[in-house]
Simulated scan of single mutants.
Amino acid sequence: MNRTNLCIRMLQLLKARGKMNTTQLADALEVNPRNIREFKKELVLAGYNVEEVKGRYGGYILNDQYDLPVTIFSDEEKDALVQSYKFMRTQKDFKPLTLYCDAMDKIIATSKISSNASLHYMSNSIELDKKISSMIDKTQQAMNHGICVVLSYQSLKDETPIEFEVEPYEIIHYHKSYYLIGFSLLRKDYRMYRFSSERMFKCDISTRHFIHDNHFHLSNYIGEHSLIPLDLKHVIVRVYHKENGLRLFKEKYWGNKLLPIHKEDDYTDFEFYTDDMSNLYQSLFSMMDQVKLLSPDDVRETYLNRVEKIINAYKG
């Protein structure tokens, strides 16, 4: 069969069988597996909505059903939709989150709205040096046009920088730093990369285009209050009343559902829930001996180890 016939046959297979991976399609069409990605690109250019699902059980699917017609929005409405979409993707407690994101994906896909129109912020803005600012701008430009970026990046585990391509999905601003969340073509998985002169040495726009994975949701890659999604910890602390300890304690943010659970003349015990261990340790340290961490044991042990390391650093 010629190339056109192979593309049509690929459409027929996806329509009849549903999701198929590269190997299955290559076997059915009797072609090299690398040809499948080429056929997919040609079908997308021709107007067929062939999507690629990432992961071990991923593959290609033909999704040619639209629940909504093409809609024209004002610039203000587009911005409002994008901002609300980005916010809702961080609300992990919202039960119909997946259905909401799928619906918004359809609206954005059929309305010429860029879901990457702006950065996603989790903290206050900061000043950036020119090199970092340039790399962020390039990444944002690549996101807007569905193009990969080429990174020269050295993680904390690497001895030297490694160069590889990434499909950029989100730029996150958290705790005075910027991070890129994207699909690494080297690791074949979603990874997080910090925009830092000590880690990211180069960020250039590639020539490789990619199709945005509609199954990607930001809420799967960030926590409620921390960048890395962690399980909420049930924390209990003892706050001593001396030297305005109780008042100073209440001025800080500790977590969700902060409640007093026991009170004596000289102290009050509080419980709360948090997944931001960094903020917890910093707050405990700033309160000195006015707050004592009671539980959980693993968090308490980690905090004591950190304090011990600080003390040992000054003993020398």
Rank of each mutant, 00 (worst) to 15 (best):
C203P: 04
R238N: 04
Y153K: 04
E167Y: 00
L248P: 06
L230R: 08
K233N: 11
Y169A: 02
I222G: 09
V150H: 13
N220K: 09
L180N: 00
I205M: 14
H173M: 03
V149R: 04
C148H: 07
E198V: 13
H212T: 07
K252N: 11
L151M: 08
G146F: 02
G146R: 01
Y190C: 10
N244P: 03
R199G: 12
F210Y: 10
Y179M: 00
V235D: 03
K202Y: 15
N244I: 05
E167P: 00
G245T: 02
I222R: 10
E198K: 10
K188I: 11
F210H: 06
V149H: 05
G182Q: 00
Y253P: 09
Y193Q: 01
H234F: 11
E159Q: 15
T207Q: 15
E167L: 02
Y240M: 03
V237D: 01
H212Q: 07
I171K: 00
L218D: 08
S196E: 11
E243L: 06
P229T: 15
I222T: 14
D158R: 12
V166Q: 01
G223W: 09
H241W: 04
L185Y: 08
L227C: 09
S206M: 10
N144W: 13
I181C: 01
V239W: 00
I205D: 06
S184N: 01
L227E: 06
Q154I: 08
G146M: 04
H212D: 04
Y193V: 07
G146Y: 01
I211Q: 10
I222A: 12
F216Y: 13
E198P: 07
L156D: 14
E170N: 04
H212F: 12
Y169I: 03
K252G: 06
F201H: 13
E198F: 09
R247S: 05
H225N: 14
S219C: 14
H241R: 05
Y174C: 08
S219H: 12
Y169M: 02
D231H: 12
E251Q: 05
I205F: 09
E251L: 04
E243K: 04
L218R: 10
K250Y: 13
S184D: 02
I236L: 10
V239C: 03
Y240C: 03
Y169F: 05
E167I: 00
L218S: 10
R238Q: 02
E251R: 06
V235S: 00
K233S: 11
E198R: 11
Q154H: 09
H215W: 09
F216C: 05
D231W: 08
H145N: 14
L186H: 05
R238Y: 06
V149Q: 04
Y174H: 07
V150I: 13
E251F: 03
L218P: 06
Y169R: 00
E251D: 10
S226D: 10
H234G: 07
G146D: 05
Q154Y: 07
G223P: 15
G182A: 02
R247E: 09
N220H: 15
D231I: 14
T160M: 11
F195W: 05
I222K: 06
Y153L: 07
E224F: 07
R194I: 14
P168G: 03
H175Y: 15
Y178R: 01
Y153W: 07
N214K: 15
L151N: 04
S206I: 05
K252Y: 12
E170I: 04
G223T: 08
L218H: 07
Y190H: 04
G182T: 00
P229S: 12
I222H: 06
I172E: 01
P161M: 14
E198A: 14
Y179W: 06
T207C: 10
I172G: 01
